[in-house]
Nucleic acid binder design. Structure first.
Lengths: 119, 119
DNA sequence: ATTATATATGAATAATTGTTCATATATTCA
DNA sequence: TGAATATATGAACAATTATTCATATATAAT
């Protein structure tokens, strides 16, 4: 209930102070959240998963992800704006590929989590 | 624009077929998304970050995360329901701790992403 | 028992966001 | 140049979700 008054000093403020030190800076928390948020939508994750195996154009991505062209394009924009993917025009087509190699590691960790018996 | 008709067979359907094989099962995509979604909110990420250094009670978490008691409790419920954290009552207090060790790896990858020069 | 402290939770609200529909832009081909 | 294909994007809509406020429950202390 309270937020300021500390009637409660079991294990003292030291616990809080230490925990606060070890945590990330607020701005860093936001940034780490952002990368997770980008991968937390099925449409976007499918796009990124597909691109982990190599460059694909929008039409192929639309097929692979079983979405509409518009929806895929909108999500590609978000991924591109956030430097997860990059694009290059190849004549008639626009080919997309992974721009940030860290995403592979992050996703692998997510998959590892999934494959465990704990659930 | 189209979704069915394939006027476009540059690099053939084989590309799509192969990409679809390499991607995860739809249910697995959902599950991987879920773990990212859980870590994609600043309040929840702060909670998890704090708990990575050891068990903390709700009051301490409230202080560390600089949120209200209610908001922290709501987020703890979500994290507990999804087996990211677990709780045990210790007399007057309820102590929370990390239930799923995979989150450490996932977050470390997220932080690694952050620390890179690319942005 | 009564009071105070610690945590949990339901309902309401506000904000964010993913999709769809329509349309615009860009490139190729006839 | 004009038609067709490929991609992008704005606006509207629906759904999800994080927070707040009020209150309920649980434990401890007096």
């Amino acid at each position: 209930m309270q937020k300021e008054s500390c009637a409660h000093n079991h294990a003292h403020e030291a616990v809080v102070a230490r925990a606060k030190e070890e945590i990330l800076l607020p701005s860093d928390v936001e940034k780490v959240c952002k990368i997770f948020q980008l991968l937390s939508d099925p449409s976007r994750l499918k796009i990124v998963l597909a691109l982990l195996n190599g460059e694909l154009c929008v039409y192929h991505l639309t097929e692979v992800c079983e979405g509409t062209q518009s929806a895929v394009s909108h999500q590609l924009r978000i991924l591109r704006d956030n430097h997860i993917v990059k694009s290059r025009r190849q004549g008639k087509f626009v080919e997309y590929s992974i721009a940030d190699n860290h995403v592979r590691g992050i996703i692998e960790m997510g998959v590892q989590h999934l494959q465990c018996a704990e659930h």
